[in-house]
Design a protein around this nucleic acid. Structure first.
Lengths: 187, 187
DNA sequence: GGCGGCATGTAAGTTGTTACATGATTAA
DNA sequence: TTAATCATGTAACAACTTACATGCCGCC
C-alpha cells in the first residue's frame, strides 16, 4: 500500500502564509492576488474547504475573533498554524519541486497562425506585452517598498529572489514581444 | 441566453494539428510531447474523448486505414479536419488570448524557505536549472533542423517565433538560477 | 518468452473555476 | 439608498491526471 502524497498545493500555500501570521480565508485570497498573482492563483472554492480540512486534521486552529480593535461586531474566522502544521510545511519544503505548470495559449495560436492574417497575431502579441508590462512595472515598486521595511521582514531575502525571477522572466517576455512586433510589422 | 465558449483548448490543439496533416490520437499525443512540451501538455484522457466529440460535431472525420504501406494489419484511426473544423480553428485564432496559466511551485517554496536551511533551496534551484538547461539545448537543435526543411514547412516562420520565445524565457531561467546559486553559496 | 513500443480507450479520482447565496458594513 | 467591499461558504460543473484494460507487433 503506497501512501499517496497530496498534490494539492493550496494546502501548503495556506500553511506557508499562516506561518507568517494568523489570517482569515478572505485575507489569504487577497494576499495571493496581490503578492503571488504573477506566479500563483487560488479561488475561494479551493481555500475555504482546504481550511476546514486542515483544521480537522489539526494542522491549523481557528480563533473566532470578535474584533476588539475597530468595534465592529462581525466575527472574522482567523486561523493560526499549529506545531503539526509547521512540521508538515517544513517537510513539504524539503521535497523535490514538481515540474511547473505552464500553458501559453499565445504560443499555441502563434504556432497555427499561418492560417490567419498577421495583423491578428500582431494584435495578440501587443495585448500580451501590455498586460505583462504592467506587471514588470510592479516588480520595481515592490522591491523599493521592501527595502523600506527590511527589518520587519524575516524573509525579505527570499522575497527579493522571487521578485528577481519575475523581473528576469517578464523582461524576457517584453524583449520577445518587441522583436516579434518588429518582425510582424515588416510583413 | 449567453453562448458559452469552450475553454477546452485540447479541442483547438487537435484542430490545429489536423489542419497540417491527418493524424491518429496516438500521433497527436506524441507530437505534443515532442514539439510542444515546453509550453503545452495533453494526456490521452483528454485527446481520445475530444476526438470523438469533434467527429460527432462534424469538425473532423475518421478514416480507418488498413495501412497499406507496411503490410501490418492493424487499423489506425486517422482523423482529417473538415471545412467546418477549419472555420472553427480560424475563429478561435482570432479570439483574444486568455491569460496564461503559470504555477511555479519553485517560487512558492522559495518564498517560504526561510523556514528551512539554504542548502535545501540550493538543491531545488540546481535541479530546476538542470531540467531547464536540457530544454535550452533542444531549442538550437530544433532551429537547425528547421533551417534544413524550410521549403516543406509552410509555417516555419511561426515555429521560429515560438522557439525564439522558448529560448529567451529559458535563458532568463538559466541566468536567474546562476545568480541564485551564487547568492546561496555565499551564505 | 518477455519486454517495449504502438494503439485505443475508459473509469475513477482530483483539482480547479464559476456562479450563486447570504448578510454585514461602509462610503457616495 | 444603492453600490462596493468585506466575509464565508457551497453546488455544479469543467478540466485534467492517473491507472488500468486490451491486444498487436517486432525484437532480443
Amino acid at each position: 500500500m503506497i501512501l499517496k502524497k497530496s498534490k494539492n498545493k493550496t494546502r501548503y500555500l495556506i500553511l506557508g502564509l499562516l506561518n507568517e501570521q494568523p489570517l482569515s480565508g478572505y485575507e489569504i485570497k487577497k494576499l495571493v492576488d496581490m503578492r503571488f498573482s504573477f506566479f500563483w492563483s487560488e479561488s475561494f472554492g479551493q481555500i475555504y474547504p482546504q481550511l476546514r480540512k486542515l483544521e480537522l486534521e489539526g494542522a491549523i486552529s481557528k480563533r473566532n475573533i470578535v474584533d476588539m480593535e475597530n468595534t465592529s461586531k462581525r466575527d472574522v474566522k482567523k486561523y493560526c498554524i499549529t506545531d503539526k502544521g509547521i512540521d508538515e510545511l517544513k517537510e513539504w519544503l524539503k521535497e523535490p519541486v514538481e515540474k511547473e505548470v505552464v500553458r501559453y495559449e499565445l504560443l499555441l495560436k502563434l504556432y497555427f497562425s499561418n492560417n490567419v492574417s498577421s495583423e491578428v497575431m500582431l494584435q495578440h502579441i501587443m495585448e500580451f506585452q501590455v498586460a505583462h508590462r504592467k506587471q514588470l512595472g510592479l516588480f520595481k515598486k515592490y522591491q523599493e517598498e521592501l527595502q523600506k521595511s527590511i527589518d520587519t521582514h524575516e524573509n525579505y531575502k527570499e522575497v527579493l529572489m522571487v521578485l528577481s525571477f519575475g523581473q528576469k522572466v517578464w523582461n524576457a517576455y517584453d524583449e520577445w514581444c518587441e522583436e516579434m512586433i518588429h518582425t510582424l510589422n515588416k510583413k
